[in-house]
C-alpha cells in the first residue's frame, strides 16, 4: 500500500448533463509532494476534489487515493485524507477544542490519544491560547488555521485543500502557505492543493494545470515556466535599427513587440550592459523573467480571470504575450 501514489486518476470524467466538468483526467501525484492543481474557475478543480474526497461519484474512469479506490473503498479513502474545504466548515457555536474533539471522535482517534493530539495540533497552528474560545469569535485566518489543524489531527496520508487562501488577507495567506510547506517538508504526507493563484502554485514541487476538465500541462513550476520561453530584454532606444544591428552582430535573437526591441538570451543584465556600451540612447529597458502565469497563458491562450485584479502590470504583460502568441 505504501508504494501506491498519493493520488492516481485514470480517464476520470464527470458530467453534469451535457457539461463535462471533468473530461478523461489522468493524474498521478507521488507521495510526499506539495502538489498544486492549478486552473481558472470552472476548470474542474472542485469537481476533482469532490471525487477524491468521496463526496461525488465519477461518471466514468477511476480515482485512487493512497491506493484506495474512491468508489469501492470510500471509507478507507476517507480515513486516508484530511480535507480543508473552500468554505469554512467549522461549528462556530463550539470552541476550537470542541471542534477538534468532534473531529477526533469521528475519525477513530482513541480517547486516550485525543487530548495530546489536539494540544499538539492547536500548537502547530499557533492557536493554543484560543483553544477554549468559541469559533464564531475567530477571524477568517484563525478559522482557516484551525481547519488545517483539524485536517491534520488524524495524521492523514494526503492533505487535500480546495482553494484554502481565497478571501484571506496577505499575511494569513503567507502563514497558511508556510504551514503547508512545513507539512510537506517532512515528506511523510502529500499536500494536494487547488489554487488559481500563480504565486502559490510556484511554491509547489509539482503542478498540474487543468482547463475545461482536461490536463493541459504538468511538471515542476520551473519546467512549466521554461515552456513559456526564456528570459528576455525589452528595450526602446533612440535608434532601434542601429541597436538591433548591434544585437544581431552579438549573435542574439531580436524581435519586435509594440515598438520595442525584444532580445532573447540567458543573461539579460549582462546583455543590457553590453548593448549600452555600443548603442547609445537607450531610453527604456525591461528585463522580463517569465512566471508561471506566462506559462499558463502560453498554454491556455487566456489568463486567469481572478488574477487580473491583482496587478495591472502582470495582466498587461500577459495581454502582450497573448497578442504575440496569436501571430
Amino acid at each position: 500500500m505504501t508504494a501506491a501514489p498519493a493520488v492516481c486518476t485514470r480517464a476520470l470524467s464527470r458530467s453534469y448533463g451535457s457539461l463535462k466538468a471533468l473530461d478523461e483526467l489522468d493524474l498521478e501525484v507521488a507521495r510526499g509532494q506539495l502538489f498544486a492543481l492549478l486552473g481558472p474557475n470552472g476548470a474542474g478543480k472542485s469537481t476533482t476534489i469532490a471525487i477524491l474526497t468521496t463526496l461525488l461519484a465519477p461518471t466514468s474512469g477511476e480515482a485512487m487515493v493512497a491506493g484506495w479506490d474512491v468508489v469501492r473503498s470510500p471509507r478507507q479513502v476517507r480515513a486516508s485524507i484530511g480535507v480543508v474545504f473552500q468554505e469554512i466548515s467549522l461549528d462556530d457555536r463550539l470552541t476550537a477544542r470542541e471542534n477538534l474533539e468532534f473531529h477526533a471522535m469521528t475519525h477513530g482517534i482513541d480517547a486516550s490519544r485525543r487530548s495530546p493530539r489536539i494540544a499538539e495540533a492547536l500548537a502547530s497552528v499557533g492557536l493554543s491560547s484560543a483553544a477554549g474560545k468559541r469559533v464564531r469569535a475567530f477571524s477568517g485566518g484563525m478559522k482557516r488555521r484551525l481547519e488545517i489543524a483539524r485536517a491534520m489531527l488524524h495524521e492523514p496520508a494526503v492533505l487535500v485543500l480546495d482553494e484554502p487562501t481565497v478571501g484571506l488577507d496577505p499575511q494569513t495567506r503567507r502563514t497558511v502557505w508556510e504551514q503547508l510547506a512545513a507539512i510537506a517538508a517532512t515528506r511523510e504526507r502529500t499536500v494536494f492543493v487547488t489554487t488559481h493563484y500563480m504565486d502559490e502554485a510556484e511554491r509547489c514541487d509539482d503542478v498540474a494545470i487543468v482547463d475545461h476538465g482536461r490536463l493541459i500541462a504538468r511538471g515542476s513550476p520551473a519546467a512549466l515556466v521554461a515552456r513559456a520561453g526564456g528570459e528576455r530584454l525589452v528595450v526602446r532606444t533612440e535608434d532601434d535599427a542601429k541597436a538591433a544591428a548591434h544585437a544581431q552582430a552579438l549573435g542574439w535573437r531580436v524581435g519586435n513587440d509594440a515598438g520595442r526591441l525584444v532580445i532573447e538570451g540567458d543573461r539579460p543584465e549582462a546583455m543590457l550592459a553590453r548593448l549600452a556600451e555600443r548603442a547609445a540612447g537607450i531610453r527604456e529597458a525591461t528585463i522580463v523573467r517569465p512566471k508561471l502565469e506566462d506559462a499558463f497563458v502560453a498554454l491556455t491562450g487566456r489568463e486567469l480571470r481572478d488574477v487580473r485584479e491583482e496587478g495591472g502590470d502582470r495582466a498587461a504583460m500577459a495581454t502582450n504575450l497573448r497578442a504575440r502568441g496569436r501571430r
Partner: peptide, 14 residues
C-alpha cells in the same frame, strides 16, 4: 448551508 455536514461526510464513518 454552513459546510459542517461536508466535514462530517468526509469522516470515515458510515
Amino acid at each position: 448551508e454552513f459546510g459542517m455536514l461536508r466535514a462530517v461526510l468526509v469522516a470515515p464513518v458510515s
